[in-house]
Design a protein around this nucleic acid. Sequence first.
DNA 1: CGACTAGGTTCGTTCAATGAACCACAGGGG
DNA 2: CCCCTGTGGTTCATTGAACGAACCTAGTCG
Lengths: 164, 164
Amino acid sequence: MALGKDYAEQDCSLARALEVVGERWTLLIVRDAFYGVRRFSDFLVHLDIPRAVLSARLQALADTGVLVKDGHDYVLTEMGKELWPVLHMLARWAEDHLSAEPSRFFVHTACGTRIGPDGTCAACRRRVPPEDLEAHAGSGLRRRSDPVSVILRSPHRLLEPIRT
Amino acid sequence: MALGKDYAEQDCSLARALEVVGERWTLLIVRDAFYGVRRFSDFLVHLDIPRAVLSARLQALADTGVLVKDGHDYVLTEMGKELWPVLHMLARWAEDHLSAEPSRFFVHTACGTRIGPDGTCAACRRRVPPEDLEAHAGSGLRRRSDPVSVILRSPHRLLEPIRT
DNA sequence: CGACTAGGTTCGTTCAATGAACCACAGGGG
DNA sequence: CCCCTGTGGTTCATTGAACGAACCTAGTCG
């Protein structure tokens, strides 16, 4: 990971996880992938990240099997999709403790219920996988003007590819 | 966070979270805090981290309220303790997908049941807070020889301060 | 053909991570 | 009293990753 020295000496599966998703930008790339971003240039404009870094991260994520490269699209694998609960909990933690206005919230498409902090649907009483969720813009959303941000401002189902 | 440029432009509470816990070493420091590590020198020897970086991270975590400095001890706040589900899920993800042998597993002290991937006790059917969990060494634990690793090899309750 | 776009790579600069050395203070012993 | 040790840091030169601008290549449109 990040510097010459990795986390090899740590006896913890957490350290293994951080070697894969612990670098700068990596989790934001994965988040965008859940939002339906698939193309290099879309990640680029939405994240405002150096091209070289994006290239390196996408390749690393493809190498470890979080993403798979399909033509010019980078798509989440099953392994990647299972990061959803982690992303969701981290975002909820920030909202609860960093006075971050929720910029997005998520609704269970099947029943229309907003899911709780633990990722479960209160009505259905079970975990909802990301493909059954619809993202809605919340009060804390800043009005950015790049094409990807504009598209992501209207409600959309997670993992559904966006069209720029 | 990491470089001059932070995640300020991102409209996402995830980005806010990563500004606090997304830097190199930070989540491993928080993990050790759950394991009962509290002293500067104990973090130092267990993480094998440069002193300057450890100093900077502990101060940053105290500034944001994840830890509180009590004399020479760094202790998790309520806000910090609520990171437990995130850490636990990330570690389970690594075990499931990175062929990482579990180095530790966690048992609900009250009923003796090993908790599931989502952090719930199968017997009690509810979320178990970290202070009610006991950490046990698993099959994947490497035999490191520093004093902190030796202590952490025997079962111990989370958040219970270790004695070197 | 020429212009334009998507998807990168190259490379010089900047800035954080590293690790070794140094500093300050608090006991404890002689 | 001075010396020694342990704890909890800070300072600083070096290294390597992130940055950002420029460049490259393949495909497409007119």
